[in-house]
Design a protein around this nucleic acid. Sequence first.
RNA 1: GGACGAUUAGCUCAGUUGGUUAGAGCGCCACGUUGACAUCGUGGAGGUCGUUGGUUCGAGUCCAAUAUCGUCCA
Length: 1015
Amino acid sequence: MKSMTTEIPKQYDPAAAEAQWFHFWESKGYFNADPNPAKPSHVIMIPLPNVTGALHMGHALNGTLQDLLTRWRRMQGYEALWMPGTDHAGIATQSVVEKRMLEEEGQTRHDIGREALVKRIWKWKDEYEARILSQLKRIGASCDWRRVRFTLDEVCSRAVRQTFFKMFKDGLIFRGKRLVNWDTFLQTAVADDEVYEEEIDGHFWTFDYPVVDNAGQPTSERISFSTTRPETMLGDTAVCVHPTDERYTHLIGKHVRIPVNGRIIPIVADALLADKTLGTGCVKVTPAHDPNDYACWNRNKDLMGEPINILNTDGTLNERGGAWQGVDRLVARDAIVAEMERLGHFGKVEDRKIPLKHSDRSKTPVEPYLSEQWFVKMDTLAQSAIDAANDGRVTFYPERYRQSYLSWLGEKRDWCISRQLWWGHRIPVWSNSYDVSELNSIRETIEQSIQSGESCDPSRKISYHISAPEKGRFQVLICFADGNQTLEYAFEQLGFVRDPDVLDTWFSSGLWPHATLGWPDTTHNPPIVGQDPLKPTGKNEVLPYFYPGIVLVTSRDIITLWVARMVLTGLYNMGDVPFRHVCIHPKIQDGFGQTMSKSKGNGVDPIELIEKYGCDGMRFTIASFAGETQDVRLPVGYECPHCQGIVPQEQHHLKFKPGKPKIKCAKCKKESQYATPNYIPDEGEPVARVVIERFEYGRNFCNKLWNATRFAMLNLEGYSPGDVDSGSFAIEDKWILSRLATVTDEVTTLLGVYKFDAATRSLRDFVWNEFCDWYLEMLKPRLRDESLKPAAQRILVAVLDTTLRLLHPFTPFITEELWQRLNEIAPVRGIPASTQASAAIIIAPWPTGLDHWRDTALEARFYRLQELIVAVRNVRGTYNISPAVSVSISVRCTEDVAADLKQVQPQFELLAKAALTAAGAEVSRPNASASFSLGDADGYLPLEGLVDLQAEVARLRKEADKLRGFISGSEKKLTNQSFIDRAPAEVVVEVRETLAGQQKQLASIHEAIKQLSGC
RNA sequence: GGACGAUUAGCUCAGUUGGUUAGAGCGCCACGUUGACAUCGUGGAGGUCGUUGGUUCGAGUCCAAUAUCGUCCA
């Protein structure tokens, strides 16, 4: 047993502990959560990371907080489930894979086809999912790994299919037109977050259109407008002026003729689109190719007629282009300018910088393009989610984020759910069109098919919609519920074709909270890795036990995209919200205030920091960031591989440059390659690795904790468990127990409202500034005294035990390591009565019921002692007295303070290297002594030969000056009649008392100055 | 353009309902390797709280305006 204590190394080795204990926890099944009627459940659904790439520090923060909460609740006795998984992330992933394919093989998706592309993306997904999950494990994530899900897996797919079917049947899904960002190079729509804006050199042309009379003949008037895209005039459906623009009011309702194609279009008034103060005040309206124009068209549909699409998918003009059909839009642009000039409708042209949206994938300009899309009707769904936040079923932390959630939902804009991609959940709708004469026969065919086959309830397998006839034809849309492949095939034989589009990624991730629990399956529990075949339960016990969850932990940018969708789909499918709390945490930025992201190339891999600072050090630091207000800025550095000097990251280091740029160390002047997501360093080449010095905060804290425990263990020789009579507690025992009780209460409360930063500070201050700096120091003499040692050991072990448990959610690995070591030396511990400690800290109970230790009066008394000791140290510092030299001190003070002082007399030597010679009201000032005053206690240090009279007087005068400042502030208040009259009585009393104390203190200092100066 | 947040010590950040002349970590200065810890200890220097105006007996804290930065939505 004794050998154990001497083996403990001086420094904590994070890598060893991390490898050992993660495996231990997982193999013991401590992460697993299963329905258990004896316990309340606590559920957190991970904000599923995209499989596009590896995780960065933003994810590490998110994961750390969820793990912290999960471990905390688990210790509190909850059946704590943290559900892991990843998102297929439609366009993002497909685009990464396509890009790589193009770079490495020169192939596009059209070269290899849908099936082959999807197969490749699955391969990519497998690789990155594995990487992501292993990163999460490295940060200590105590997810129930048996339950890991993927949005395209069987379980999630069933939920998607069922939700779509239900919505289709309920009439919530419809087809509609919408402007999308069209990539003419890749010939696909791209999402808003896949485009970036870039200024290009362009032109700003001014033309005019002739106003025509009712017969379509030109009048003498013309109306001028300017544009950067003249070719779109082929698709104009109106020109627009401001309704109060006097230049044009007489023209509103009249028409103009487009000179290049002769089409007659109306002049409309729209206050939102036209701006009197800009240019001519008149604009052309091309709803099919401009979002603002499209919005205008929506407001003025009746006046304009249908939007006119002039483009083919490859960016050439279509049949609406007339003479320019088949010509690329940019070539046509110049031709049309020339034609307008020839016809005499050209005004002028000027050069201008034009902000233009580009596709992130092809780097080519995108065209706004009107196309057919699928939508979900949002009115009632959005309202249900609004109600849930308004009536408190869903609460936001911090509260202000409720606003962005509500205002976004309040718009109730229909949700466009189709994407022209191959990677994702394919829309389960088949369509075909028929001549009106076939209407009855096709309806009959469908009805007959529904009745056929062995499937039970016909209304649950098929839902169809027949459109209103147009030009003698109508369209039939059929949505099949999951598991009707035979019917799908049968209808394909009839010529029905499945929609090629896939669903928006958020459609599936929005179902995450209930889909992962097996919904809509009511007869089986969701599958679990390692439990095969499924245990036949006859019902799904997991879903009702774990739904609804408790808290969603995420960052603010997906409140609308994801949080709102989960709430409304949860209400729609389950009839209840998916979680009660939404905890919004800060975003991680680099040293320049830019949010960390893969595309910016400024992301830092948490693994790099874990290897440098230890997982617990990383976690503790990151938890200390997670407050309610600010985002977190992390200045990054590169550690020179030659001399370990730190080169601060500069912005140019983040920009992608071809080749392998080097970084130069300012210290040793050597160059080296550096770690960046932009390239892989050469094999065997020395690399400057990423460091973030702020993480030393957590690493140092862990080392401190390690050594405090090490100290305890080195002093546990001969430890025996046993009861400790609280009557025998020394003042420092009572103090540390009172502080421990207070901190336990604080941390518990703070975690409950997701104030991780404050909880972390509270713990650090307690461990470092109270437990280590004061308590352990004061305990040293007792641990050397054989008669006092047994009780001191028991209290020390008990305090340490509780402290480790409080820290476990923050720093799981080091606390488990120390707990296990403590279990070998002191398995039975606790005060006043001792009990057998838990076999692992991860399942140890969270500290509760310590309130009876709290004693604020005692804490105040102890604070007076600390002040005294600090004052002595201050004097020592001033005179530069060597720590080897002991001084003596006498204190003039009240008898209460004297009694406390005498109790801690032995520690004075250790804490201030001062021998307390006398304490009490009768103590007088010795000659040639330095002194200090605390108001109700004055200390004297005889420093024969050490005291420099002049220096001491100067020091005291400085003190006195400072006091006078305080005093005049207090006096000023008390002589202010309005203060006396209007301030609350207790505040006035407080100021009076403060003033009295300050005056007393000043008097003591004056006395000392008087004596020293001998007058 | 709208909404929200931030602006406090050289750096990164706390500061709960307005109440002594504002705190922490890092960095800096001085001293110190005393058997838990130099990833350490002790002491110290250093901010008037972006700017302007207002409310109040009293403002870092509340209100208004303004500047700058960040984020989301247009």
